[in-house]
């Protein structure tokens, strides 16, 4: 009951001060909006890149080439071993005849080139699909050391590693940018709140003299920070809601192979993150400025 009573007071005070703040409130909301919109864009970009990397990874094909002569027992041993590895999604045995046939199909009209061959130069092979590129190295190492019937192993190692490296660089740079923007927003929120605190220092002094507790004095300012942060967050969400579909439309014709993320659940999670970040910036910003002012 008392809590509701106090809460009511805090929120009312916060709203009054928020609207009285005018230009300063507007400035800090704008800063938060811009920072969060950029943060959101970075999140979206990395989300798409992750999706892209995921698709690339799911297409990771490993081809095991077998030696010319081997016994059926040894082959069965290898097949059994492969089936037991959980990271391997599927495996298909391709005989040298099948491989040649496949090659012939891929060459299409130039298949006459193959006619010049007297014998089939292609080895028997096993094609593997692996769930995640991260486990590729280990699997390959294990296979190589264990089975002598393996002549060579080929896989799209380079592409996967490049994508992984790029994602990592992007993540680091994005984090740095977001941290800088976050600090700037916090600084501006804290300055805005500092101005409201300053404008109301007389009131705060009297509150203290008649026996208001520090937390009672502090809460309205914290709510004001929350309000600014939440407002900025909502604005950023609106910006992204409007611009992102347009960006997808424009890029789709240019990059038809790119799988853009537009699942509702992913986007809602993103919006949630933005709103939360806004509120967080607001709270920290106001705490910084209120803390110093309370020693009346």
């Amino acid at each position: 009951m008392k809590l509701m009573n106090d809460l009511n007071y805090y929120i009312k005070e916060a709203f009054v001060s928020f609207f009285r703040g005018g230009l300063m409130s507007f400035t800090s909301i704008t800063t938060i909006t811009i920072s969060l919109a950029i943060f959101g864009m970075i999140l979206i970009f990395s989300m798409n890149l992750k999706e892209f990397a995921g698709i690339l990874e799911s297409q990771v094909d490993v081809t095991i080439y077998l030696v010319e002569d081997y016994s059926e027992d040894k082959l069965q041993e290898l097949k059994d071993f492969i089936i037991d590895i959980p990271e391997i999604q599927s495996s298909v045995f391709v005989s040298k005849a099948e491989a040649l046939e496949k090659l012939r199909k891929e060459l299409n009209e130039e298949d006459f080139l193959l006619n010049a061959l007297e014998t089939n130069p292609l080895p028997d092979s096993i094609e593997l699909k692996i769930k995640s590129s991260l486990s590729v190295h280990d699997i390959i190492k294990k296979l190589r050391s264990k089975f002598l019937i393996i002549d060579d192993i080929f896989y799209g190692q380079e592409i996967v590693e490049k994508v992984n490296r790029f994602t990592q660089v992007l993540r680091i740079m994005g984090t740095i940018l977001v941290v800088l923007l976050g600090l700037a927003s916090m600084f501006i929120v804290s300055n805005t709140i500092k101005l409201t605190v300053y404008a109301r220092r007389e009131e705060i002094e009297i509150m203290k003299l008649v026996g208001a507790t520090n937390s009672f004095i502090r809460w309205p300012f914290i709510f004001e920070g929350i309000l600014q942060g939440a407002f900025g967050g909502v604005m950023a969400i609106i910006i992204i809601m409007i611009t992102y579909p347009q960006i997808i439309d424009n890029l789709k014709s240019m990059l038809p192979f790119m799988p853009f993320v537009s699942r509702k659940a992913d986007l809602f999670l993103l919006y949630g993150k933005l709103l939360f970040s806004g509120v967080f910036l607001g709270v920290i910003g106001s705490l910084i400025s209120v803390r110093k002012f309370l020693d009346v």
Partner: peptide, 24 residues
């Protein structure tokens, strides 16, 4: 005196009760 110019006579007095968390 330390009265708040932006508040009425009533509010100035009520304020001292509000800030110690008294009910409306």
């Amino acid at each position: 005196f330390k009265l708040l110019k932006s508040k009425t006579v009533y509010e100035n007095v009520a304020f001292a009760m509000r800030v110690i968390g008294m009910k409306g």
